[in-house]
C-alpha cells in the first residue's frame, strides 16, 4: 500500500488532549490506524471479548486519545451465500469515548478516529 506521509497525523499517540478529527481516507491514515489497532490488540490495551455467538466487544483504550472505548463487533454476518473465512473480517473501528475533545459537535462521540477506515480483525 502506498504511504502518503503528508496526510498522516504527526500527533504522538496516545494523547488525551488531541482535538476532534475525522480522518480522511488516505493510504497513510489507513496504515497508521490499522497499525495502531494491531499494536493495541497485541499489547492488550484493546481486546476482543466474546459476548456470545459471533459477537464480540472490542474494548479497551483508543490508540489515539487513550480513553476507554467499547464497540460491538460481529463476525460471519450473513450477507451472501458464499462461504467465508470464519472469525475474520474487516471492520470500521472508531473511537467512541465519552471524554471531551476540542472541535467535536454535540452529535458525535470520541476523538473522531478511525472514521470509516477498514481494519482487519480476527480471533486467534
Amino acid at each position: 500500500m502506498r504511504r502518503d506521509i503528508r496526510s498522516v497525523s504527526d500527533e504522538a499517540w496516545p494523547d488525551p488532549a488531541v482535538p476532534y478529527d475525522y480522518p480522511a481516507r488516505t493510504a497513510g491514515n489507513e496504515a497508521r490506524w490499522r497499525e495502531a489497532i494491531a499494536a493495541a490488540l497485541e499489547d492488550k490495551t484493546l481486546e476482543l471479548v466474546a459476548t456470545g455467538g459471533d459477537t464480540y466487544d472490542l474494548t479497551g483504550r483508543c490508540p489515539r486519545c487513550g480513553h476507554e472505548i467499547c464497540q460491538s463487533v460481529e463476525f460471519d454476518v450473513i450477507a451472501s451465500m458464499l462461504p467465508l473465512e470464519s472469525r475474520f473480517g474487516m471492520f470500521g473501528v472508531r473511537c467512541n469515548c465519552v471524554a471531551a475533545h476540542a472541535g467535536r459537535d454535540g452529535d458525535h462521540q470520541g476523538c473522531g478516529w478511525g472514521g470509516s477506515i477498514p481494519v482487519p480483525l480476527y480471533i486467534r
Partner: peptide, 20 residues
C-alpha cells in the same frame, strides 16, 4: 440481550443452511 442476539444469529445460520 446476549441470549436473544445469539439465538437470532443461530436461527439465521440454521435457516441459511436449510436454504443451501
Amino acid at each position: 440481550v446476549d441470549a436473544f442476539r445469539t439465538a437470532h444469529k443461530e436461527r439465521a445460520t440454521r435457516a441459511l443452511k436449510r436454504l443451501k
